[in-house]
Nucleic acid binder design. Structure first.
Length: 521
RNA sequence: AGGCCGCUAGCUCAGUUGGCAGAGCACCUGACUCUUAAUCAGGGUGUCCAGGGUUCGAGCCCCUGGCGGCCUACCA
């Protein structure tokens, strides 16, 4: 039959040509028509503020005690089941969802007919009284509703949701809209960070902010992003750590400081690495790495208890028990368990032979400590599922950590490991300015041998140490990775709202913004 | 950076040996005053990632490129 004809009956002042029915390929078109229809019915489809008294989840959960009360809620329409003169809708807000029960008798003909122009995904405000339907479903008998915002784009399928990972990251707003699990992850993330602040605030730590852009990118061994300041005509680096500034504050007498902030590392992207990530760093005057271990296990287990209600979390099918005390395992012991006796190495050749024997690739010219680090990472790390402090790192890969008094080739340093993932880094801070200078010089030497991740010299930091920094314990925690464990996420991108993605061609900035200095290598 | 895999309707996915482009949901038309992955009747809405090539004929085969995922490498 000719479909073009009866199609036009429906509200078509757009001058639709016969043969090109409005139902054409464009799903957006029918939504635009509904938008226009609302406008011509005198309804502003992008309405004014709405007086919200309750959340959907609250009504859903307490429907029996709320019966007869008047409530008004607002959220997105996620399902419509129309039965002629009665319509059911699911309305979803951040906290949950509840069913709307809309009847022609209750709303009147004109209002009820507006439902014709409500699409899946529209933001709706509804006022009415909670009750249970005959099927027992907690619902709101709606007396009045308003379209608060029109959704012009079609939503992903209700059953499978949005699973295309690329789209989930690029259009996070859609992901958040339709995938409750995704929303839950970010709510949890927010709770973790705020609980973290409370934990530290309660213990007398001061939250501070230090420069994100500086002329030296120190505090870690990593390649920085480079940018340029026009007025001063100088090169600036985006920070790779907050360490050296926070320690200057300890010198200044601030005693206990922390910063939760983004750091930027110009390195690879993977399921465990995003170029910008959130780092908690804290420093405590008069502490050391033992007090930092106590603090770490105390903090992380408390966060789990507070945010998740348990200290035993499920991660990738394993139950991880965060209750203190955590296992403490030195690097030397750890390798010994894998049949590597680093005490028996008489020179670097022995180290290389052991690495080769175990099939661990080691670059030419790297230091002995680096070889130990690689062996641990390769052999030990993947097996450390339960929380473990991996401790006493070699001195040459720990330029800011204090040397062990009884074993000067190693340092008072540890990395907390959970589920085979390094989630932090901590040490008794090196506070001897002369020793620090020698360490920096050694790093510079490595740099000249081609290691462009080696630490750079920071004269002002040395000057600060010369004023005297108290013995200090310092700790860094990779917040994203911690969130991964708390939310059972296998990719860091699942816990970062907008992870870095290569731009789609049409999103490329043609004028300025992207130039060689920000996308090098 | 290297290797492997993927890209088909708004979404989730099929697509045989190279022979008219498919399903479910969504959407459109109609029915329905207690449904809930509502149901019933009817309708397929497409730059098969892009550009070349082979072929009578390409979603499928070949080449180049784009984007993504996983693994390896670097790192936390």
């Amino acid at each position: 039959m000719d479909r073009g004809g009866d199609r036009v009956s429906r509200e078509n002042e757009t001058g639709e040509v016969e043969g090109t029915p409005s139902t054409g390929g464009d799903l957006v078109q029918s939504r635009r028509e509904n938008l226009d229809a609302l406008r011509s019915a005198g309804v502003d489809p992008y309405g004014d503020s709405y007086d919200v008294t309750h959340h959907a989840g609250e009504v859903h959960g307490r429907v029996d005690e709320m019966e007869g009360e008047e409530v008004s809620i607002a959220g997105r329409v996620t399902a419509v089941r129309s039965h002629g003169k009665v319509t059911f809708m699911d309305l979803e807000d951040l906290g949950g969802q509840v069913q709307l029960f809309l009847r022609k008798n209750d709303l009147g003909d004109d209002k009820y007919d507006l439902l014709e122009h409500v699409d899946l995904g529209d933001v709706l405000g509804a006022r009415g009284t909670p009750f249970r339907t005959r099927m027992g479903e907690p619902s709101i008998r709606v007396e009045d509703f308003r379209v608060l915002s029109k959704c012009l784009n079609p939503l992903p399928e209700k059953y499978h949701g949005l699973t295309d990972v690329d789209l989930r990251y690029r259009r996070r707003y859609v992901d958040l809209m339709v995938n409750r699990e995704s929303r839950d992850v970010f709510v949890t993330r927010s709770r973790i960070v705020s609980a973290m602040r409370r934990f530290l605030d309660d213990r007398g730590y001061l939250e501070v902010e230090t420069p994100m852009m500086a002329t030296i990118a120190g505090g870690a061994t990593a390649r920085p992003f480079v940018t340029h300041h026009n007025a001063l005509d100088m090169k600036l680096y985006l920070r790779i750590a907050t360490e050296l500034y926070l320690k200057r504050l300890i010198v200044g007498g601030m005693e206990r400081v922390y910063e939760i902030g983004r750091v930027f590392r110009n390195e690879g992207i993977s399921t465990r690495h995003n170029p910008e990530y959130t780092l908690l760093e804290l420093y405590e005057a008069y502490g050391d790495y033992h007090s930092m271990m106590d603090l770490t296990e105390d903090m992380i287990s408390s966060l789990a208890e507070e945010v998740l209600g348990t200290m035993q979390v499920e991660y990738r099918g394993e139950t991880i028990d965060l209750r203190p005390p955590w296992r403490r395992l030195s690097m030397v012991e750890a390798l010994m368990e894998h049949g590597v006796d680093i005490r028996a190495w008489s020179d670097d050749g022995d180290a290389r032979r052991d690495a080769a024997r175990l099939g661990v690739a080691v670059e030419e010219g790297v230091t002995r400590g680096k070889i130990i680090d690689e062996l641990v990472e390769e052999l030990v790390l993947p097996g450390l599922i339960q929380p473990t402090f991996l401790l006493d790192h070699p001195v040459d890969i720990s330029p800011l950590a204090k040397r062990k008094l009884d074993d000067p080739e190693f340092t008072y340093r540890f990395e907390p490991v959970i589920a085979g993932m390094e989630i932090g880094n901590a040490f008794s801070e090196l506070n001897d300015p002369e020793e620090q200078r020698r360490r920096f010089e050694e790093q510079m030497a490595q740099r000249h041998r081609g290691d462009d991740e080696a630490h750079v010299m920071d004269e002002d930091f040395l000057t600060a140490l010369e004023y005297g920094m108290p013995p200090t314990g310092g700790l860094g925690i990779g917040v994203d990775r911690l969130v991964m464990i708390f939310t059972d996420s296998d990719s860091i991108r699942d816990v970062i709202l907008f992870p870095l993605m290569r731009p789609r061609i049409q999103e490329m900035d043609s004028e300025e913004g992207i130039d060689s200095s920000t996308i090098e290598s």
